[in-house]
């Protein structure tokens, strides 16, 4: 089964995945009309700045076992076994934030949402774009990502590729090969700027 795979070393922090995610979970599915909706659609993937301004698309890992699921008081969080996706039932959610205390990645947010009853604040997180996948589309964050920091593939394929890349980069015969050369340069510059306190 294909899944969203995150490659943090390739993220440039452009936040296009956030816009695409919010749009994909809006009522009208169109960026321009989505900005006029009430409640205003919000992203379920979060690009937080690292200590040196590096980007990282932080999204739900759909853990198994999922700590949020065990912490949920009304039993609103469940696993859809067919798609291996952890979902929140907005009708059952009581907005108690027990899941915020349980999620070790900090990916759950609390707000009104098009999928929830009107004016009800609920816990919201990544749903693997199941609605889009049912229409034959890939998750919105992957579709929009230009730097291939987010890919949609079989995890074992991604694992194999990564193993090869790491093996190559560690090979003593060759000069050290960077896994993502351009991105490493970008992040090194960002880091140096912070360390030397260079203002742009």
């Amino acid at each position: 089964m294909k899944k969203v795979v995150v490659h943090p070393e390739r993220c440039v922090g452009c936040m296009q995945c956030m816009i695409a995610c919010a749009t994909a979970h809006s009522q009208t599915k169109n960026l321009f009309s989505a900005t006029l909706e009430d409640p205003l659609p919000r992203p379920r993937v979060h690009v937080g700045a690292g200590l040196y301004g590096e980007g990282f698309p932080n999204r739900c890992r759909h853990c198994d076992p999922a700590p949020c699921m065990f912490a949920c008081l009304p039993g609103a969080i469940y696993r859809d076994w067919e798609t291996d996706t952890v979902l929140i039932d907005p009708d059952k959610c009581i907005n108690c934030a027990s899941c915020a205390m349980a999620c070790p990645f900090g990916v759950i947010r609390y707000h009104e949402d098009a999928s929830a009853p009107l004016k009800k604040t609920v816990a919201v997180k990544c749903d693997n774009c199941l609605e889009r996948q049912n229409q034959g589309l890939i998750p919105a964050c992957v579709e929009v990502c230009k730097s291939r920091a987010l890919t949609f593939e079989d995890p074992s394929d991604a694992m194999k590729r990564k193993t090869n890349e790491v093996a190559q980069s560690l090979s003593s015969d060759t000069s050290r090969i960077e896994i993502a050369p351009g991105f490493t340069l970008l992040n090194t510059i960002k880091r140096t700027q912070v360390e030397l306190k260079i203002e742009n």
Binding site: P8, G48, A49, G50, N58
Partner: peptide, 10 residues
């Protein structure tokens, strides 16, 4: 307030 998971991934 801007603290996030990314900052621990050094």
């Amino acid at each position: 307030p801007s603290f996030n998971y990314n900052q621990l991934m050094m």
